[in-house]
């Protein structure tokens, strides 16, 4: 448990908290990117270089930007109507989340003695990941490719103007 771990996880959790608590949606997204960056750093701490960089590339470079586009294409209801930013059933939601956290925290802490403590650092190169993707995990990879293609087409069709379709 190094100092860096505490620092990065504090940053990540703070980013996550800000992302769900802030009033301005664009600020929420910026806080979300802080959380994403913190998670990428945690991945790097766990010696998962490839996953960490993929995290930055995909989440900060693509998903955050996508969310921003969606925000700018829609209007924020709490700005337009001056209502609160939480839904009517926020107490229930908060209780459920707290219960989930209690259960998970209890499970993690209760199983702490059984968890492996220290292992040798795995030296996994990108080459090995590529090999695994192309041999053992080829079927998931192909299915994923299909899924992403379907997602692209679906997203375009869903978001397209209906006027264009009826032409």
């Amino acid at each position: 448990m190094s100092f860096a771990f505490y620092l990065i996880s504090a940053l990540t959790v703070a980013g996550g908290l800000a992302a769900v608590l802030l009033r301005n949606i664009v600020h929420c997204v910026l806080a979300l990117t802080v959380a994403f960056a913190g998670l990428a750093l945690l991945f790097l701490q766990l010696d998962a270089q490839f996953a960490g960089f993929a995290q930055i590339l995909i989440y900060i470079g693509a998903v955050a930007i996508l969310v921003i586009f969606a925000i700018l294409l829609t209007r924020d209801p709490q700005v337009s109507q001056g209502k609160g930013m939480f839904s009517r059933t926020w107490v229930t939601g908060l209780l459920i989340a707290a219960a989930v956290f209690a259960v998970m925290g209890w499970a993690v802490l209760a199983s702490a003695p059984a968890l492996p403590n220290e292992t040798s650092t795995p030296s996994v190169t990108v080459l090995q990941i590529g090999d695994a993707l192309m041999s053992r995990y080829i079927l998931p990879l192909e299915i994923l490719a299909l899924l992403l293609t379907a997602a692209i087409i679906g997203a375009v069709i869903v978001a397209m103007h209906e006027k264009v379709r009826s032409k």
């Binding site: 992302a19 609160g84 926020w90 702490a112 968890l115 403590n117």
Partner: peptide, 28 residues
């Protein structure tokens, strides 16, 4: 252990996300 630390952080983040998804009014 280090692993426990990561798991606690993950649990915390998951709960924050869940709370956000269940309580906010904006779909985004």
């Amino acid at each position: 252990t280090p692993l426990t630390g990561y798991l606690v952080v993950a649990a915390l983040l998951f709960s924050i996300g869940l709370a956000g998804a269940l309580t906010r009014r904006n779909a985004i």
